[in-house]
Design a binder for these strands. Structure first.
Length: 901
RNA sequence: GCGGUCGUGGCGGAAUUGGUAGACGCACUAGCUUGAGGUGCUAGCGGGGCAACCCGUGGAGGUUCGAGUCCUCUCGACCGCACCA
């Protein structure tokens, strides 16, 4: 009897060793079968894996194992996003070198990942901090530079005073650094930029074709890129009062139709015109200074009053040189968008209206809403920003807004001043270039040498990689590369004169923007990618990771792949054909009376009827059960994957991660849930053991006929197979779990029946004397007839392969028990017999006036007339009709019958 | 403010995409079994009613033979962006 417990600890280590020894998850680049590339976002080596990793990598592993069983050549690699700040913080706090800290963490996490039984090709392992990786990144930086995709610009940057580094716009959240949480300051620095804006149209337009991406992510990227069509208008400045060299003011507008409603002009406090005007105007300079100190936090922006300062400069209306518009410096204009200057049309823009109401500049409505009489149309406190019919607008009057926009553009395009058109149509993007300079040590060095004579000179390719010096100190703030006594002092590659290395390193998001391409051939040494290989493997068919990367990592990777294409390193634009964003792992929180958080491992929860009570296991102190939140160190509501794997095994952790919630939603980790998964794993083990015994000596040849019972089992098995196959394709793992439970339940019921029969026959046999049953082992000889034995064997062979992707170790153990010599990890996906999904008879629900009242069972090929006759003969239908004829009988083939009375 | 997603038993969630609402699991209840215990088995489990039946997918309308699913309005939760000209 195989009723002993399944020992996960023993079995998991054993099978992992066998997989490893036989190298079955190593992927060959010369395999002729069709490829499938599944990838989970690689981890930062923080030191320990967390439950989010377990969920992420389990999902990817299930996909990899299913696709492998389906006969595809699967690439499923793993690596380390190994540069970054925590390594430097560890160096500062604990006096360990970032490199040692990082590699120790990698070793520890690799052991943990291995204990999960993931089907990874570890031979392709990459660490981004390895010079064999980042030297290629440096080469591509130089390629991008030559291709005009890297620029060095002086610009206002987001400075994180805590991390002492620059942040990209994408890394500033609510005015704070995404990592440190510190209020970001504005500074002027010379920085290296990737020209992501050059690809803005392509990045936007291609989103429509990413049909295997979540709609939400595509929309977030679309909004982030922020395309708007409009007109760039050059307003001439009145020459009186104008600072030297300033003769015009460029303005971007999406509403050229409202030009005759203009009341003022406004420029950002950091606009050049503002600065020029402030030189001779101390009061204005003071106002600009005040604006700079305004907070950027959400609440402050919402409540901030619109403030302005009249520069005394006057701009001329483009259609009427005599019409002068006052130019203000205003606090609500941002330099980062458009040209940092606007014309204000108060009637049709709420901000402009607030502004004129404060300074009593008045307003003129020029767009009349469709249902309003122009004579009565007045704007007071609420601007009208919709479309309508033009009024008070000279030659535009009577046109629609759309016509007026076109007419203004047409006229101003033709009009010229200083040999240039006064206006041109322009598409404007919200997206900014990607500033990649970071004043940190633990990152990829930017391969540039600054020479006083030659400027910024690329490091010659023969000198790559520019490696990080290891003898650095972290005893003072700032960049250790800058403090290093010798590293930065080099000869200029061009003139040989004294020069200085660039001491900034690259943003770590650069490292993660192309690792998936490197995985396709991580061994090639003379180039970032091996073109035939990268072209054969890319794109990633299924990418899986957290929604938090919806913009940053995914947008950068899309850019980087385009840049690599332009420089000849890949042959495609879009790296990820399919994207799946999984939900978070959440857990209850526990709080002590003194306000401190208690960890789940320290807490004992007792159930008393409907109420649950929590106490500290050590002291018995009562703790309050708090809201369910994302697992985090600060709330201490984390569960350590190692503890779970130690107690229940990796399979149980994997199964539970997939079973309770749809993968895109948050999943709550509960002790009850894990125990449920553990019980099911044990139940499967028992069930398959029993079924294997009952199926002993099953005929090798498939029987010609099956009893009803055997056929029912076969149908259950193939139905489960069809559904699991289907739901695996859709990544509906929780539904797959339900189907597997159903098959297990069906199998259990059959085994129960056979057992009962066996006992009956044994008892009957005993009274008949000459009995072969051994009473102490009633199941030793199978009670099942040959056809049922065959069906049982078929069913368990299907069942094991269905749950294998989720619980691979248990599946191997069962597979071996069933007498297979090869590994289930290498077994093909079961073959579906479609005929078994079709029933000979159909039981259709019968509705009367849309409410279900009865069932009718008809032959599968019954015609509508036959079905209708059968339905009308039903008692419930007769009763409802009460002798009358039905108004209508609707028969949906194979689905439902509705009788309308 | 703009944009989006989602509201189904005590809980997590299914629902062949307009066709039997509540699959499967958790929790709970009763009985049996095991046993020091967290084990196993059987049955029940949306609400009302003795019953036939009636009601039921946040709320209110609508389309349809038929609506959890489509449309309109509305309430609520969550997410993203935000002085974007």
């Amino acid at each position: 009897m195989a009723n002993d417990r399944y020992n996960a600890r023993d079995a998991e280590a054993r099978w992992q060793k066998i997989w490893d020894e036989r190298g079955i998850f190593l992927t060959r680049n010369d395999d002729p079968r069709p490829k499938y590339y599944v990838l989970e976002m690689f981890p930062y080596p923080s030191g320990r894996i967390h439950m989010g990793h377990v969920r992420n990598y389990t999902m990817g592993d299930v996909v990899a194992r299913v696709k492998r069983a389906m006969g595809l050549n699967v690439l499923h690699p793993m690596g380390w996003d190994a540069f970054g700040m925590p390594a430097e913080n560890a160096a500062i706090e604990r006096k360990v070198h970032p490199k040692a800290w990082t590699y120790d963490n990698i070793a520890a996490m690799k052991t943990q990942l291995k204990s999960m039984g993931l089907s990874l090709d570890w031979s392709r392992e990459i660490a981004t901090c390895d010079p064999t990786y980042y030297k290629h990144q440096q080469k591509m930086f130089l390629d991008f530079l030559r291709a005009g995709l890297v620029e060095r610009k002086k610009s206002k940057v987001n400075w994180d005073p805590v991390d002492q580094t620059v942040l990209a716009n994408e890394q500033v959240i609510d005015g704070r650094g995404w990592r440190s949480g510190a209020l970001v300051e504005q500074r002027e620095l010379t920085q290296w930029f990737f020209a992501i804006t050059k690809f803005a149209p392509s990045l936007l337009e291609a989103l429509d074709r990413l049909d295997r991406w979540p709609e939400k992510v595509r929309l977030m990227q679309k909004n982030w890129i922020g395309r708007s069509e409009g007109l760039l208008v050059r307003f001439a400045l009145d020459l009186a009062n104008v600072p030297k060299d300033e003769t015009e003011l460029e303005v971007f507008t999406t509403r050229p139709d409202t030009l005759f409603g203009a009341k003022f002009m406004a420029v950002a406090p950091d606009h050049p015109l503002a600065a020029a005007a402030a030189k001779t105007n101390p009061a204005l300079a003071e106002f600009i200074e005040q604006c700079k100190h305004r907070g950027t936090a959400q609440a402050e922006i919402e409540t901030a009053e619109k403030l302005g300062f009249d520069t005394g400069i006057r701009a001329r209306h483009p259609f009427d040189a005599a019409w002068q518009l006052p130019v203000y410096v205003a606090n609500f204009i941002v330099m980062e968008y458009g040209t940092g200057a606007i014309f204000g049309c108060p009637a049709h823009d709420q901000r402009d209206l607030d502004f004129v109401n404060k300074y009593a500049l008045g307003n003129v409505p020029v767009v009349c809403p469709p249902d309003v009489d122009p004579k009565n149309f007045v704007i007071t406190d609420t601007a009208y920003d919709g479309d309508g019919v033009m009024i008070n607008s000279r030659f535009l009057d009577g046109m629609t807004s759309a016509q007026a926009k076109e007419e203004v553009a047409r006229r101003l395009e033709r009009e010229r001043r200083d040999n240039r058109p006064v206006a041109e149509r322009q598409v404007n993007y919200r997206l900014r270039d990607w500033g990649i300079s970071r004043q940190r040590y633990w990152g990829c060095p930017i391969p540039i040498i600054h020479c006083e004579r030659c400027g910024a000179v690329p490091v010659p390719e023969k000198d790559l990689p520019v490696t990080l010096p290891e003898d650095v100190t972290f005893d003072r703030p700032g960049n250790p590369l800058d403090h290093h006594p010798t590293w930065k002092h080099v000869a200029c590659p061009q003139c040989g004169g004294p020069a200085r290395r660039e001491t900034d390193t690259m943003d770590t998001f650069v490292d993660s923007s192309w690792y998936f391409e490197r995985f396709t051939d991580p061994w090639i040494d003379n180039a970032p990618t091996d073109r035939p290989m990268v072209d054969a493997w890319m794109p990633v068919d299924q990418y899986i990771g957290g929604i938090e990367h919806a913009i940053l990592h995914l947008l950068y990777s899309r850019f980087f792949t385009r840049a690599m294409k332009r420089t000849g390193h890949v042959g495609l634009d879009e790296p990820f054909a399919g994207l799946f964003t999984q939900g978070m792992v959440v857990h209850e929180t526990y709080r002590r009376a003194n306000g401190e958080w208690a960890a789940p491992a320290e807490v004992k929860v007792e159930v008393d009827g409907d109420t649950r009570r929590a106490t500290l296991a050590a002291t018995g102190e009562a703790v309050e059960i708090g809201p369910i939140e994302k697992m985090s160190k600060s709330k201490r509501n984390t569960v350590d994957p190692d503890d779970i794997i130690e107690t229940y095994g990796a399979d149980v952790a994997r199964w539970f991660m997939l079973s309770d919630s749809p993968p895109e939603r948050d999943v709550e980790w509960t002790e009850r849930g894990v125990q449920g998964a553990w019980r099911f794993a044990q139940r499967l083990w028992r069930l398959i053991g029993e079924a294997a015994e009952l199926a002993q000596d099953a005929p090798a040849e498939r029987p010609a006929r099956f009893s009803d019972e055997a056929l029912a089992l076969r149908k259950a098995a193939h139905r489960a197979l069809a559904r699991v196959t289907d739901d695996m394709e859709k990544l509906h793992f929780n539904v797959c779990v339900a189907h597997i439970y159903e098959l297990a339940n069906a199998l259990n019921a059959i085994i129960g029946d056979i057992g009962a029969q066996g006992v009956e026959e044994a008892q009957a046999g005993a009274t008949n004397s000459a009995q072969t049953w051994a009473r102490d082992k009633p199941q030793q000889t199978s009670a099942a007839p040959p056809d049922l034995r065959w069906a049982l064997r078929e069913a368990v062979n299907i069942l094991v392969r269905l749950f294998h992707p989720m619980m691979p170790h248990l599946a191997e153990e069962c597979w071996a028990l069933l007498g297979h010599d090869e590994l289930v990890a290498q077994a093909p996906w079961p073959e579906l017999e479609r005929a078994l999904l079709i029933e000979d008879t159909l039981t259709l629900p019968v509705q009367i006036n849309g409410k279900k009242r009865a069932d009718v069972t008809v032959p599968r090929d019954a015609g509508n007339a036959e079905i209708e006759a059968a339905v009308l003969a039903l008692d419930a239908v007769k009763k409802a009709l009460d002798g009358k004829r039905p108004k209508k009988v609707i028969i949906v083939p194979g689905r439902i019958v509705n009788v309308v009375v």
